[in-house]
């Protein structure tokens, strides 16, 4: 049983362990450090109840296997986790906490985490949350795992809420400069339209409608624009989701800025791609980390060096001292010996 091997490795660890699944997101977060704990032996879907909208899987289960099982029942992971490589595992999806194009409409990874089984730094098996959608017993440790990058404990199993695939989708494109696009998507976001994704790049705003057939066709007719064919639309959104679009190619540092959606265009050099109704902005730039972080902070958001560039200053925006101290205390509460303190978050 792989769990007992994990426990042995935890007990034997002389320095921090670095939890790793398929390694498709090795580039993400602070510099890699520590001995690898490979999760891939702990794999498989434990249970899947389509009518209860819940799937439970072991951490090393390939994301592709989960998506295939869901697709068979016409369901999906609504947060559209990026697939940066074939080896991506569900444990990595949750630990990285990254969401795709549907995030602004449907929510993030953490919004779909219902429960986890964990191994803590002492090798204790802990169960938090469960397989039900409403559960307020005890602190919400399960959601805390989303985005923790393996620094709080080892996610053994995770239960996720799933959703039916929309009955219909349509993708529309509008020629529009950045400032107008941001204003427009925020205004449309305030109307009862079935918007499920937005993207702006190179003076083109692309948006996706998803929902009941009638809702999608009505909204498409009302909004106008150029309608993309189904294949072109799927390619476009998958290209964004999985970073296979041309914008993400090449070696220039890739920054991810998370901002209040209505923030006007930032005065930073480089190419910009805007998602999530204005809330997520990608930047290919050689600007200094200090300038980028200052601009993000001034707008009420933060910036992470997502890929490439020089991570020696840290991948993530530094926290104010009191909050940084609280983060450390929370980390130590679950892992006092620092077994998972790889420094990646």
């Amino acid at each position: 049983m792989s769990t007992s091997r994990f426990i042995e490795q935890i007990h034997a660890a002389s320095g921090p362990l670095r939890i790793r699944g398929g390694g498709s997101k090795d580039f993400y977060g602070n510099a890699l450090a520590g001995e690898v704990l490979d999760t891939r032996s702990h794999a498989g879907i434990v249970s899947y109840e389509p009518t209860e909208l819940v799937i439970t899987a072991r951490c090393g289960t390939p994301l592709a296997e989960i998506e295939a099982a869901l697709a068979e029942k016409n369901q999906m992971l609504a947060f559209e986790p990026p697939r940066f490589g074939d080896g991506a595992t569900i444990g990595g999806v949750v630990a990285a906490g990254l969401s795709g194009p549907r995030r602004a409409a449907a929510g993030a990874v953490r919004d779909y985490v219902l429960g986890v089984h964990l191994l803590d730094g002492a090798g204790h098996l802990l169960r938090f949350g469960g397989q039900v959608m409403k559960n307020v017993a005890g602190y919400d440790v399960s959601r805390l795992m989303a985005g923790s990058l393996g620094t709080l404990g080892l996610i053994l199993d995770v239960s996720l809420k799933v959703l039916p695939k929309p009955a219909a989708e349509a993708t529309l494109r509008f020629a529009m400069p950045q400032g107008q696009a941001i204003a427009t998507i925020n205004a449309w976001g305030g109307r009862p339209l079935p918007l499920s994704a937005t993207a702006w790049q190179d003076d083109a705003l692309t948006l996706r409608l998803s929902g009941a057939r009638a809702a999608v066709s009505e909204a498409a007719a009302a909004l106008g624009g150029e309608r993309l064919g189904d294949d072109a639309a799927a390619d476009f959104w998958n290209g964004l989701r999985d970073h296979r679009a041309a914008f993400f190619a090449g070696d220039a540092p890739l920054w991810r800025l998370a901002l209040p959606t209505a923030t006007p265009p930032l005065d930073l050099p480089g190419a910009t791609l805007i998602e999530w109704g204005g809330g997520q902005r990608w930047l290919r730039t050689a600007a200094s980390a200090a300038d980028i972080r200052a601009a993000a902070a001034a707008a009420g958001g933060h910036a992470a060096l997502f890929r490439g560039g020089d991570k020696s200053g840290g991948a993530f925006q530094p926290l104010p001292p009191a909050l940084a101290a609280l983060n450390q205390r929370v980390r130590r509460a679950l892992d006092p010996e620092g077994v998972f303190d790889s420094g990646r978050r």
Partner: peptide, 16 residues
């Protein structure tokens, strides 16, 4: 805790 942006650096203390 949290922010008016879609997410924040550090652990997700808001959800917690």
């Amino acid at each position: 805790i949290g922010s008016e942006a879609p997410d924040s650096p550090g652990y997700d203390l808001l959800a917690f």
